[in-house]
Design a protein around this nucleic acid. Structure first.
Length: 479
RNA sequence: CGGGAUGUAGCGCAGUUUGGUAGCGCGCUUCGUUCGGGACGAAGAGGCCGCAGGUUCGAAUCCUGUCAUCCCGACCA
């Protein structure tokens, strides 16, 4: 093994160039590929499998909470998009338009959906008549298109996969409850499945969704201390309903505008997983969504009994419900070790002639590199319990990164100094004025991440304008 | 949309200054020997040098245009 050869396949050191490291991991772990259209990416089987596991979890939670999946059209007439003023202003600049059908120019151009609020509202205006029709709890898994000027794998695509939930309720209270419920499901996904701790909060007026009355967000901190908005849940009030003429007769026979919510989580979360857990050997996948949880690497596989034992072991682990791959290709064991580390497989199981004699195998954790010799007796339980340990360790490490990098500042200068020297989130009081938010961006390069749901209710002054303030806000540099 | 960079084999690059018909490493194919941290040998396959014009006896190389991608900003899930 020459060092020269290693250099050919190595990825960029994350501390030297985090951006390049990220791109290297996306490509070399075979998650994604570029295409001939800017901003449009191929989700390769291994990357898509991660998304499928996330989908499986969310889809189950959505259905448990009463939501049904639907499929809406991909094209939206311009006139429909324009019905809600804030919404069109927010999205029109980044819409792609269909202007021709075959060679004929269309009478009205059609927008490729950047999001589907307008389509749902139009539909609902036809089918909602009575309080008995409510609530409507819909979700769709689809792709949407936003003509972004710059793009990066997972973090910013022109076309990306997501789910968008859309619901309609008779009362404001019920709609707000729905909005918060869905935010909590996203937070559960992040914390209990992806091992990513979150900060839950509300977006400022400046940062909220176009047309929303209130936007809830979960913010995650990446390894380089930048923020990633990982999921959002919006309360619309009844503004959309009024703009689209949705009305129902309530129990008192009063014609009433219902309240709407929407909530979405996209494949961007895969970028979050990569940047939260990854290291200089490549991807590190949280065990609960890893397409391969245990990879079995035979050693000296041509020797009698080795492959047979590996196959038996694979069957045994699969029967216990684990996702297992046995790599019996003719690559060397060392090559396989490096390959599956790059792909972030949580647990590696090595089995060779020496182990066979002792009825044991070697288990190696991806997160810590820790190697243990364990008996083949009860291997399913050993593996499962190690996978849980890995999940917990990943979460603890990410939580430490988050907690260690939240700083408090009492002046703009202090906030600026923290951002320049340390990064991370800066917690301050805030008066609520847009002007101060803009100034923070201008002076310290940070945008507001959120007003955390847990507000300590401290009275003081806004560090930017010096006026009385009581809201706690997090600032940061975001992806 | 501004600033920077790059387009040559699947990937990474050399060759361009000084024009002469394309090369290296990895990967790929076949055979053999290997196998507990990216194995070794031998023999092979693979190119409209981003695209379009122009100059020239001759262009990867010079000129003009154009397209695309990546990175950094402004905008966004």
């Amino acid at each position: 093994m020459s060092t020269e050869k290693k250099a050919v396949t190595a990825i960029t050191d994350m501390d030297a160039d985090f951006t390049q490291w990220y791109t290297d991991v996306c490509i070399k772990a075979e998650l994604i590929d570029y295409t001939s259209v800017k901003g449009m990416f191929i989700y390769r089987p291994y990357g898509y499998a991660i998304w499928e596991n996330i989908q499986a979890y969310l889809d189950k939670r959505f259905k448990e909470t009463g939501h049904a999946n639907v499929a809406m059209p991909m094209l939206i007439p311009e006139s429909l998009l324009q019905k809600e003023k804030d919404h069109v202003e927010g999205f029109a600049p980044e819409c792609a338009w269909v202007t021709h059908g075959g060679s004929e120019e269309l009478e009205e151009r059609l927008c490729v959906r950047p999001t589907s609020e307008t389509v749902f509202c139009d539909h609902w205006s036809h089918i909602v008549h009575s309080w008995r029709d409510l609530p409507l709890l819909y979700n769709q898994w689809c792709s949407v298109l936003r003509w972004e000027k710059t793009s990066r794998p997972f973090l910013r695509h022109r076309e990306f996969l997501w789910q968008e939930g859309h619901t309609l309720h008779a009362t404001e209270e019920e709609a707000v409850t729905e909005t918060e419920q869905m935010l909590n499901i996203y937070a559960d996904l992040c914390e209990t499945v992806l091992a990513m701790p979150v900060v839950k909060g509300l977006k400022t007026d400046k940062e909220k969704f176009a047309g929303a009355e209130r936007t809830y967000t979960i913010e995650c901190m990446m390894h380089d201390k930048k923020a990633l908005q990982s999921g959002t849940s919006h309360f619309f009030g009844n503004g959309f309903a009024k703009a689209f003429g949705i009305a129902f007769s309530d129990k008192n026979n009063q014609l009433t505008a219902p309240f709407e919510t929407s909530w979405g989580l996209s494949t961007r979360i895969l970028g979050g997983i990569i940047m939260t857990h990854g290291d200089n050997r490549g991807l590190v996948l949280p065990p609960r969504i890893a397409p391969i949880q245990v990879v079995i690497v035979p050693v000296a596989q041509h020797k009698a009994g080795v492959l047979e034992a590996c196959h038996q072991l694979a069957g045994q682990l699969k029967a216990a419900g684990l996702r297992v791959k046995l790599d019996d290709s003719d690559q060397s064991p060392g090559w396989k070790f490096a390959e599956y580390e790059m792909k972030g497989v949580p647990l590696r199981l090595e089995l060779g002639p020496k182990d066979l004699e002792k009825n044991q195998c070697v288990l190696v954790r991806r997160d810590s590199g820790e190697k243990t010799f364990v008996s083949l007796e009860g291997i399913e339980k050993t593996a499962q319990s190690l996978l849980d340990d890995i999940h917990n360790a990943l979460f603890a490490k990410a939580q430490k990164n988050l907690e260690d990098n939240i700083y408090t500042a009492e002046s703009l200068e202090e906030a600026k100094a923290i951002q320049e020297q340390k990064g991370g989130f800066v917690k301050t009081l805030w008066c609520g004025e847009l002007e101060c938010e803009l100034k923070m961006k201008e002076e310290a390069g940070m945008t507001s991440r959120c007003l955390p749901l847990e507000q300590p209710h401290i009275l003081g002054v806004c560090p930017i304008c010096g006026k009385p303030a009581h809201k706690t806000i997090y600032w940061g540099v975001a992806y």
